[in-house]
Amino acid sequence: MDWELELLFSARILFATILRADRLGPERQGSAAGVRTCMTISIGSCAFSLISWHISASDPARIAAQVVAGTGFLGAGVILQVKGRIAGLTTAATLWTTAAVGMACAFGMYVLAALTAGLIYGMLVLHHMPGWENFTRRHAAKRRRAVRLESEE
Rank of each mutant, 00 (worst) to 15 (best):
S52W: 00
S31H: 12
V101E: 05
T94P: 07
I79T: 06
A106L: 09
V68H: 08
G131M: 06
W53E: 14
R28S: 05
L149I: 09
I79S: 08
A64S: 14
L74P: 00
A92C: 15
T40C: 11
M109C: 11
I63S: 06
K142W: 05
T40H: 06
M103G: 04
Y110M: 11
L89E: 14
K83R: 12
R28N: 03
N134G: 14
G118Q: 07
I13H: 02
Q66G: 01
S10D: 11
V125A: 02
L14P: 02
C46G: 02
G44M: 04
T116I: 07
F135A: 12
H139P: 01
I43Y: 03
L50H: 01
A104L: 04
I51L: 12
T94S: 15
V111S: 11
F15E: 12
I86P: 03
A114H: 10
E6V: 07
I86W: 15
L7R: 15
S56V: 08
L50W: 00
V125H: 05
T71Y: 12
M103Y: 06
T94D: 11
A100R: 03
T98F: 03
I43V: 11
L119G: 06
R138C: 06
L19Y: 14
Y110W: 15
A69M: 10
T17D: 04
F15K: 11
F107D: 03
I43G: 03
H54I: 00
A47D: 04
K83H: 07
S45D: 13
V68W: 06
I51C: 13
R36Y: 00
M109V: 05
G72N: 02
A140M: 12
T98L: 08
A65H: 06
H139W: 14
G77F: 01
A92Y: 09
I18L: 09
V101Y: 08
I55F: 01
S42R: 02
R23I: 05
T71M: 13
T17Q: 05
E6H: 12
I18P: 00
M39A: 10
A32V: 12
I120W: 00
G75A: 02
D22S: 07
K83N: 09
A69W: 08
